[in-house]
Design a protein around this nucleic acid. Structure first.
Lengths: 191, 191
DNA sequence: GCCACATATTGACCGCGGTCACCTTTATGG
DNA sequence: CCATAAAGGTGACCGCGGTCAATATGTGGC
């Protein structure tokens, strides 16, 4: 009859999460090993998988934490008044995603609901990102022939393919930014 | 002094490749195991990695073969005369990429040059795809304020993000197609 | 206090990609 | 035709994510 979680279990979970955060903050996401998480948390390996479906599920939580912080920053900028403003506002978000190959792959893997009623934290962050973009687009000097919702889709689509290429060819953030500015000008302000 | 490859080596490589193709054709890309490739080819595991840098390098070859065949088909269609024509023409390409999560991930991982002078087969296919799109776009009834090159970037960007979402949410090809048609109409024919 | 049962934890084990020191085969020059 | 060196091939071994039967630890009823 669905007993409540035991305190012991909640503490274990917290220890696992904080061990993981420690590792990420000193070695990066890519280097995180489940074995190191459990040894730092002083539990057995099996315990990890009793708390998280798999390694991705842990990373989903850790990465979404960062995304949420970045979205908090995005949320407080004023409404978009130019393409350059849009690009500048979303760059921190894009820099984080493109900063490590591993994060970008994870982001794509977990960017939508994996199944009915199984929406991960990253997916939720993306929904929030979409809503924020739409809201801030409404009053801007952009094309009026399509909806803000559709505009937002483009603002999300172009960076993904740019980042995919940049991660392969070792391009800089600046390249991504320049390319993106051109693409979004064409997308948002067709003449 | 860079001696020529021995015949023995060439034969071994061919056996590895044909074993791999057999496995893919009866079980799919995802299910391919290096151990099964080498056991079918009757060589040791180490031999595999003497011929291919890693498993991805083999998959790059196998997937690119399929892409090239699809591009052969794309190359012979007439120049694009509508957005619907574009969408219909590229759907086989997109269906293949979105058909297996594994292929889509591989495609993104290998979509650009990994380093200077290390361009994989999939990356080459993507360059070819881009050139074909640009060529067939030139004479079409599409917006004239941006170049065919830039138009092509959008035609590549929208599907990637659509597919990323569709793979998460188990959407159908039809969903991808409908969404893409709307996006490309907005991209290619702003009013 | 004790029993029955759910919950939590354990660690040996597995699958699979990838490595490497060592062995075998083949081409080459004297 | 043999010595030798390079190319080709081997398989035991490793790292790491993930599983599961066994075990330990809480919790509620009597």
């Amino acid at each position: 009859m669905a007993r409540a979680k035991q305190l012991r279990s909640l503490k274990t979970r917290k220890r696992l999460l904080s061990s993981a955060r420690e590792i990420v903050s000193c070695s990066g996401y890519e280097k995180l090993r489940v074995e190191e998480v459990v040894s730092r948390a002083e539990v057995a390996k099996g315990t990890f998988f009793a708390h998280f479906k798999d390694k991705d599920a842990l990373m989903d939580i850790l990465v979404a934490e960062r995304l949420e912080a970045l979205l908090d920053d995005l949320e407080i900028v004023q409404n978009f008044d130019s393409v350059e403003h849009v690009v500048a506002s979303i760059m921190p978000f894009l820099s984080f995603i493109s900063g490590e190959r591993y994060i970008f792959d994870l982001f794509l893997r977990l960017s939508g609901a994996l199944a009915v009623e199984e929406v991960g934290k990253i997916a939720e962050s993306i929904y929030r990102y979409d809503r924020i973009l739409i809201e801030k687009l409404k009053s801007g000097p952009f094309r009026q022939d399509i909806s803000a919702e559709l505009l937002s889709e483009g603002i999300q689509a172009f960076p993904v393919s740019s980042i995919a290429l940049s991660l392969c060819a070792l391009q800089s953030d600046q390249n991504v930014k320049n390319r993106l500015t051109i693409q979004l000008n064409a997308w948002m302000c067709p003449s």
